[in-house]
Amino acid sequence: MPDPVVPDLVAATGPAAADTPAMTLRLAGGGRFGPARRPQVAWAGVDGDVGPLTGLAARLTAAARGLGLPVEDRPFRPHLTLGRWRPGRPADGTLTDRLAGYRGPDWPVAELRLERSRLGADARYVTLSAWPVG
Protein backbone atom coordinates (compact mmCIF):
# COMPACT_ATOMS: atom_id res chain seq x y z
CA MET A 1 0.00 0.00 0.00
CA PRO A 2 1.52 3.36 -0.95
CA ASP A 3 2.19 5.63 2.04
CA PRO A 4 0.00 8.52 0.75
CA VAL A 5 -3.08 6.28 1.13
CA VAL A 6 -2.39 5.36 4.77
CA PRO A 7 -3.82 8.53 6.41
CA ASP A 8 -7.04 8.20 4.38
CA LEU A 9 -7.31 4.51 5.24
CA VAL A 10 -6.79 5.23 8.94
CA ALA A 11 -9.49 7.92 8.78
CA ALA A 12 -11.91 5.59 6.98
CA THR A 13 -11.26 2.69 9.35
CA GLY A 14 -12.17 4.60 12.52
CA PRO A 15 -15.91 4.86 11.76
CA ALA A 16 -16.05 1.19 10.70
CA ALA A 17 -14.51 0.16 14.02
CA ALA A 18 -16.83 2.45 16.00
CA ASP A 19 -19.86 0.50 14.76
CA THR A 20 -18.43 -2.84 15.92
CA PRO A 21 -20.13 -4.34 18.98
CA ALA A 22 -18.28 -6.28 21.64
CA MET A 23 -17.56 -9.84 20.56
CA THR A 24 -15.93 -13.00 21.80
CA LEU A 25 -14.00 -15.24 19.43
CA ARG A 26 -12.00 -18.49 19.58
CA LEU A 27 -9.80 -20.48 17.24
CA ALA A 28 -11.53 -23.56 15.88
CA GLY A 29 -10.37 -26.03 13.26
CA GLY A 30 -7.95 -25.19 10.51
CA GLY A 31 -7.02 -25.66 6.92
CA ARG A 32 -4.94 -24.36 4.08
CA PHE A 33 -5.32 -22.14 1.09
CA GLY A 34 -4.09 -23.93 -2.00
CA PRO A 35 -4.13 -27.63 -2.90
CA ALA A 36 -2.49 -30.25 -0.68
CA ARG A 37 0.29 -30.76 -3.22
CA ARG A 38 1.11 -27.05 -3.40
CA PRO A 39 -0.25 -25.41 -0.25
CA GLN A 40 0.22 -21.69 0.16
CA VAL A 41 -1.14 -20.63 3.56
CA ALA A 42 -1.85 -22.56 6.78
CA TRP A 43 -4.70 -21.11 8.84
CA ALA A 44 -6.77 -21.67 11.97
CA GLY A 45 -10.49 -21.01 11.75
CA VAL A 46 -12.24 -18.39 13.87
CA ASP A 47 -15.51 -19.19 15.65
CA GLY A 48 -17.75 -17.43 18.15
CA ASP A 49 -19.34 -14.05 17.45
CA VAL A 50 -18.48 -14.12 13.77
CA GLY A 51 -21.58 -12.11 12.80
CA PRO A 52 -20.13 -8.83 14.14
CA LEU A 53 -16.75 -9.78 12.68
CA THR A 54 -18.30 -10.35 9.26
CA GLY A 55 -20.09 -7.00 9.53
CA LEU A 56 -16.80 -5.30 10.37
CA ALA A 57 -15.15 -6.95 7.37
CA ALA A 58 -17.94 -5.67 5.10
CA ARG A 59 -17.57 -2.11 6.44
CA LEU A 60 -13.79 -2.23 6.01
CA THR A 61 -14.17 -3.56 2.46
CA ALA A 62 -16.55 -0.71 1.62
CA ALA A 63 -14.15 1.83 3.14
CA ALA A 64 -11.21 0.48 1.10
CA ARG A 65 -13.24 0.44 -2.10
CA GLY A 66 -14.35 4.00 -1.38
CA LEU A 67 -10.69 4.98 -1.43
CA GLY A 68 -10.15 3.18 -4.74
CA LEU A 69 -8.03 0.44 -3.15
CA PRO A 70 -8.09 -3.03 -4.72
CA VAL A 71 -10.18 -5.48 -2.68
CA GLU A 72 -10.48 -9.21 -3.31
CA ASP A 73 -13.92 -10.17 -4.60
CA ARG A 74 -14.57 -13.32 -2.57
CA PRO A 75 -16.54 -14.14 0.56
CA PHE A 76 -14.99 -13.28 3.92
CA ARG A 77 -13.63 -16.36 5.73
CA PRO A 78 -12.61 -15.49 9.28
CA HIS A 79 -9.22 -17.08 9.99
CA LEU A 80 -5.84 -16.54 11.58
CA THR A 81 -2.89 -17.08 9.26
CA LEU A 82 -0.46 -19.44 10.96
CA GLY A 83 2.20 -19.50 8.28
CA ARG A 84 3.05 -19.70 4.62
CA TRP A 85 4.70 -22.42 2.62
CA ARG A 86 7.52 -21.23 0.40
CA PRO A 87 6.91 -21.82 -3.30
CA GLY A 88 9.01 -24.59 -4.80
CA ARG A 89 9.89 -26.09 -1.41
CA PRO A 90 8.66 -29.46 -0.12
CA ALA A 91 5.38 -29.04 1.76
CA ASP A 92 3.02 -31.24 3.74
CA GLY A 93 -0.40 -29.85 2.84
CA THR A 94 -2.10 -32.28 5.23
CA LEU A 95 -0.41 -30.68 8.25
CA THR A 96 -3.43 -28.49 9.00
CA ASP A 97 -5.74 -31.54 9.00
CA ARG A 98 -4.55 -32.08 12.58
CA LEU A 99 -6.48 -28.97 13.61
CA ALA A 100 -9.83 -30.39 12.50
CA GLY A 101 -11.18 -30.99 16.03
CA TYR A 102 -9.35 -28.15 17.77
CA ARG A 103 -11.43 -25.69 19.82
CA GLY A 104 -9.42 -23.04 21.65
CA PRO A 105 -10.41 -20.86 24.59
CA ASP A 106 -12.68 -17.85 24.12
CA TRP A 107 -11.17 -14.38 24.13
CA PRO A 108 -12.87 -10.97 24.15
CA VAL A 109 -11.97 -8.71 21.25
CA ALA A 110 -10.73 -5.48 22.81
CA GLU A 111 -9.44 -3.58 19.81
CA LEU A 112 -9.06 -3.46 16.06
CA ARG A 113 -5.57 -2.82 14.70
CA LEU A 114 -4.57 -1.69 11.25
CA GLU A 115 -1.33 -3.55 10.54
CA ARG A 116 1.18 -3.21 7.74
CA SER A 117 2.77 -6.54 6.89
CA ARG A 118 6.31 -6.67 5.65
CA LEU A 119 6.83 -10.11 4.17
CA GLY A 120 10.18 -11.58 3.28
CA ALA A 121 13.17 -13.00 5.12
CA ASP A 122 12.63 -10.51 7.97
CA ALA A 123 8.82 -10.68 8.03
CA ARG A 124 7.12 -8.44 10.58
CA TYR A 125 3.98 -6.47 11.30
CA VAL A 126 3.83 -2.78 12.15
CA THR A 127 0.75 -1.32 13.87
CA LEU A 128 -0.39 1.80 12.00
CA SER A 129 -3.37 2.59 14.26
CA ALA A 130 -5.76 0.94 16.74
CA TRP A 131 -9.37 1.48 17.83
CA PRO A 132 -11.39 0.08 20.74
CA VAL A 133 -14.13 -2.44 19.92
CA GLY A 134 -17.45 -2.55 21.75
Rank of each mutant, 00 (worst) to 15 (best):
G120W: 04
L27V: 09
R37A: 15
G45M: 08
R124Q: 12
G30V: 08
R98P: 00
R98Y: 02
G68Y: 10
G104T: 08
R103W: 02
D122G: 15
G68Q: 10
Q40N: 14
L99D: 09
G55L: 07
R103M: 10
G66Y: 03
P90I: 10
R74F: 03
A130P: 06
D8F: 08
G30L: 05
W85K: 11
H79P: 01
D92C: 04
S129M: 04
P21A: 04
G88S: 07
A100K: 06
D47N: 09
L119K: 06
P7N: 15
G120A: 14
R32W: 04
T81F: 00
A63D: 09
A100N: 00
A123G: 12
A64H: 02
L67C: 05
R59Y: 12
L69S: 02
P7R: 10
D97V: 02
D106V: 00
A64C: 08
G45K: 02
P21S: 04
E72L: 05
P90G: 15
P21D: 12
L82A: 12
P78D: 09
A36T: 13
V10G: 05
R74C: 10
P4H: 11
G134T: 01
R32D: 14
T13R: 12
T20G: 11
G34H: 11
D122C: 13
V5N: 03
L69R: 02
L60D: 15
L9S: 13
R118T: 09
T24N: 12
G66C: 14
A58L: 09
P21Y: 02
R98S: 06
D97M: 01
R38W: 06
P35A: 15
G31Y: 00
T61A: 07
R116N: 01
R59H: 10
L60V: 07
P90F: 06
P70H: 07
L60P: 07
V50T: 15
V41N: 13
T54Y: 01
L69V: 14
A100W: 00
D73K: 03
P39F: 12
A12T: 07
L99S: 08
V133R: 04
G83I: 11
W131K: 03
G55Y: 00
A130G: 12
W107M: 06
A57Y: 00
R124W: 08
G48K: 05
L67P: 00
L60Y: 01
V71W: 01
D47M: 06
Y102I: 00
A130W: 05
D8Y: 13
L128F: 02
G68C: 14
G29H: 10
V109K: 00
A62R: 07
D73G: 09
L119W: 11
R74A: 06
L27Q: 11
A130C: 11
G66H: 13
L119N: 08
T13G: 05
G104W: 03
L99N: 10
D97L: 03
R98I: 01
